[in-house]
Amino acid sequence: MTVHLPLAPTRAVEVSIDGRPVSVPEGATLLDACRKLGIDVPTLCHAPNLTPMNVCRVCVVEVEGARTLVPSCSRKVEAGMVVKTDSERVRLARRLVMELLASSVDLSTAPEARAFVERYGARPERFGPATPAAAAGEREGRRAGQHREPPSGGAETVAQPVKIDNELFVRDYAKCLLCYKCVEACGADAQNTFAIAVAGRGFDARIATEFDVPLPESACVFCGNCIGVCPTGALMFHSEHVLRAAGQWDETEQTKTDTVCSYCGVGCVITLHTQRGQIVKATSPHDSEVTNGHLCIKGRFGWGYVRP
């Protein structure tokens, strides 16, 4: 993520969105302008603390004169732009994008994405029933460009067994919509560890370590910042995964308590999520000036010593 320091006063740029004029600083995105007007534009791969990747395409809007729709999360405002955020074309694109995602990815722990499915009236079942899940390791074995006959009678998904190779967090790539956020958080946007990257190509593209080695054999430092940015629960605290599997995860019973990490002098803000007196996970607010939402292994996972 680039941190913009206020070096010089920026010029204001005026654009029209859904018939309403709005003025935003030069360099702002169309999403910034929409939000200034209070227009609720859906996003999945966008996060305020990461570089925009504009890959999910759910935030697309219509700019007058442009041949295609444009991603509002990354497109910079230009003076005089005339933008529509709720045209027929935009709604169709957002509905189809959600249908494509919901028909290929398990969104059961992604309430935000499920809300977009509802909001745009997406009917993923139009593409047919899900075809059988891949066996463990099968997707990793697929090679770029090597064709496989499509499974008949339905819609292929990224369903596959969950990867559990450490005690801190699990990787359930059946829930991965490939937003690239974890890669960014692991890399130059936060942690600078570069333990994971996107590997493979096309529908078989996936988040992977080198040669798919387990996380403990990779460069991973278990900061858990990938979990912090994952929008679908594909990356999940082991504690949450266990409780969910046992049917005991209940967010209505949980309380969130903001505190300051006690390990070192940085003073990271930590939100402790507790259920029935037990800490079940730790996060940090994205708007915290200290953390930008990111923590280290101690803040993220080192709460085992806390007893009620």
Partner: peptide, 23 residues
Amino acid sequence: RDESCGQCVPCRVGTVRQEELVT
């Protein structure tokens, strides 16, 4: 389907759905 880079949803999943439909 084979040549999609896999970055954006409309192409990554769309090319798969197109092939399924054509099949």
